[in-house]
Simulated assay, not measured.
Amino acid sequence: MTARHAARNDATSNRPRVMIFAGVTLVLLLATLVVARGADGWTGGTVPVADASRPTPSSSPSPDAEQVAEDARNKALADRLTALDTGGATLSVAVLDLSDDRAAQYNVKPGLTYDTASIVKVDILAALLVQAQDDGRALTEREKSYAVPMITESDNAAADALWEIIGGSDGLDAANARLGLTGTTAGAGPLWGLTQTTAADQLALLSQVFGNTSELSPASQDYIRELMGGISAGQDWGVSAAGDPTGLKNGWLERSVTGLWDVSSIGAVTIGGQPCLLAVLSKDNAGMDEGVSLVEKAAKEAASVMER
């Protein structure tokens, strides 16, 4: 037998083995597909790579973890603020980081409200702008002539004029229902400075002005931000002590019956490089200077809790 014949005979003799091997491979492949169909309910024409309905791991903190972190911030803030010498004044604080919604608050309780004094002027302007939006118009030059000094100089006569234009307490309450202020009640008659509010509601108001979701149009937001960013020298104290302020409004009022002072401050500040909203309310201060000092100390403590 020649070498050529031997090679041909070897190739011929190997054919059954190749065919048997291919047959076994095909059976194994079909068995795998049947198992895959039974396990995953696959009915398509190709082998499924992954089941999209299965949940994938998430890197976001769980709701429980977020609540634990917020509770820790609240405790840290309470520890710092209860250590302050308030001189008998009552204090309430709320802070929110706009970049990630981290928040902290102190002494924010149902039914515990504070006189707004002049911080309500931001609310009055927001109500005016909401009404103008509903009417499909811009503010008139007369309205602007009141709005500017009311915010930048805390002019009371200008606030009186706009209070009347918005419809007084009824107008403010109606606007606040739109703006999400659930714990604020407008002052009776002409007494806008005795509007009752909470630190949480003041954050809600600030969120309408500085947040991404708002009843206020972008143009209305820009207008309030511009005025709050131009507070007159001598009135730029308060939450500005917590960081670089981008918007500010303060309020102060001596109560005629007790001689004690309401001193409060709200605004947007940059804390640790992050944009934050901050409201510090106080009442029953021995004097305005004592109230300003207390508000600024509280603002700094709030900033220290929020810094990363």
Rank of each mutant, 00 (worst) to 15 (best):
M1Y: 02
T2R: 04
A6C: 01
A7W: 07
D10V: 10
T12E: 15
S13K: 13
S13P: 06
N14K: 13
V18K: 12
V24L: 14
L29N: 08
L30E: 05
A31R: 00
L33C: 12
L33S: 12
A36D: 15
R37N: 15
G38M: 15
D40G: 14
G41T: 08
V47G: 03
V49D: 00
V49M: 07
A50G: 03
D51H: 02
A52I: 06
A52G: 00
R54V: 08
P55F: 13
T56I: 11
T56H: 08
S59V: 06
S62A: 09
P63H: 05
A65R: 05
E66M: 15
D71I: 14
A76M: 05
L77W: 05
A78L: 02
L81H: 10
L81G: 14
L84W: 10
D85N: 13
T90S: 15
L91W: 09
L91A: 11
S92Q: 12
L98F: 11
A103H: 14
Q105H: 14
Y106K: 05
Y106V: 02
N107Q: 03
V108S: 07
P110I: 04
T113G: 01
T113C: 06
I119W: 09
I119V: 14
V120A: 06
V120P: 05
D123Y: 05
I124T: 05
I124P: 09
L128H: 09
V130Q: 13
Q133V: 00
Q133M: 00
R137V: 14
S145I: 08
Y146G: 01
Y146M: 10
V148P: 03
V148M: 10
E153Q: 12
D155M: 07
A159K: 04
D160M: 04
A161Y: 04
L162E: 02
W163A: 06
I165D: 15
G168I: 06
G171M: 09
L172H: 12
D173G: 02
N176F: 01
L191K: 12
W192A: 05
L194D: 12
L194I: 09
T195W: 12
A199M: 06
A199H: 03
A199P: 04
A200Y: 08
D201R: 12
S207M: 00
F210Y: 12
G211D: 04
T213K: 14
S214Q: 01
A219R: 11
Q221N: 00
D222I: 00
Y223A: 03
E226C: 00
E226K: 11
G229S: 07
I231E: 01
G234S: 02
Q235E: 06
D236R: 07
V239C: 06
A241F: 04
A242K: 01
G243E: 01
D244K: 02
D244R: 03
T246P: 03
G247M: 10
K249Y: 10
G251V: 02
G251Y: 04
E254S: 07
R255W: 12
T258Q: 05
T258P: 02
V263W: 08
V263A: 07
I266W: 07
G267C: 05
G267S: 08
V269G: 04
G272T: 07
G272A: 12
P275A: 11
L277S: 05
L278S: 01
A279Y: 07
L281H: 08
K283Q: 14
D284R: 03
D284G: 00
N285A: 03
A286S: 11
G287S: 15
M288W: 11
M288C: 08
V292R: 14
K297D: 13
A298L: 04
A298V: 02
A298T: 06
E301W: 00
V305R: 04
E307D: 12
